[in-house]
């Protein structure tokens, strides 16, 4: 059951990330917009992150058969997803949050070398939660200014992903409980919600009248 749920989540995450990332990249190639470039990095990272975890589950199920996914692979996948969530938040101007000093930046990555893989996974999950919540708040504020309906779905999607990460934390404390399945179901709903407004963008080639 866990394997099936994880497969569904990771495949949906992979497909949604790939679709939105490709659309952003097409937009970047057509307009040269740095915002679309950041969005394409964000969603390609999310796509790769989900793919890494999916691959981990497949390798475990068909080759290793140990009964649980390699923690390092899971941490790697979640870390790559976190990079994607960072770029979504970064697009909203999060860059001013980080210290300008090179010293503080270098000190900031030290904790990653001092903790175990499980700790790293938890750190990535907590960072993901903060970045997703930040992205959801900023998107909601944009909706209040622009009143674009698509922004509601993206806000809902990011909020559900953040909530899913939050519940996922607690599923570590209560393994084998319903929290784990709840977390995955919420994340799947979040990914679908993210995809809804994007699916409405027409990407067909339009012929123009001759001048």
């Amino acid at each position: 059951m866990e394997f099936l749920f994880e497969n569904i989540l990771n495949l949906i995450g992979f497909l949604v990330g790939l679709t939105i990332g490709s659309m952003s990249y097409i937009g970047f190639k057509n307009t040269g917009s740095p915002t679309l470039f950041r969005l394409s990095i964000a969603f390609f990272s999310i796509c790769v992150g989900f793919f890494v975890i999916w691959t981990g589950f497949m390798v475990e199920d068909f080759i290793i058969k140990s009964g649980h996914i390699e923690r390092g692979v899971q941490a790697l996948g979640i870390g790559i997803q976190t990079v994607g969530y960072f770029f979504i938040a970064f697009s909203h101007g999060i860059k001013s949050f980080f210290p300008k000093s090179r010293y503080f930046r270098s000190v900031g990555i030290f904790p990653l070398f001092l903790v175990s893989v499980i700790h790293i996974e938890n750190i990535f999950r907590s960072i993901s939660f903060i970045l997703l919540a930040y992205g959801a708040i900023e998107t909601m504020l944009s909706y209040l200014e622009s009143k674009k309906k698509g922004a509601i779905f993206v806000t809902l999607g990011l909020s559900l992903l953040a909530f899913g990460e939050f519940i996922g934390w607690y599923s570590f404390v209560f393994p084998e409980s319903i929290l784990y399945y709840l977390s995955i179901s919420i994340k799947i709903s979040g990914l679908i919600s993210l995809f809804i407004p994007v699916s409405r963008v027409p990407l067909r080639k339009i012929k123009f009248d001759e001048l």
Binding site: G27, T35, L36, F153, F208, L211
Partner: peptide, 26 residues
């Protein structure tokens, strides 16, 4: 505006709407 200008403008408007869904401006 040239023919390529019209095509660029069309792409710009399409992807502006796309970015607005994420609360962003291109």
């Amino acid at each position: 505006i040239s023919h390529s200008g019209r095509e660029f403008l069309h792409a710009y408007q399409t992807f502006s709407k796309f970015a607005e869904n994420f609360g962003l401006a291109i």
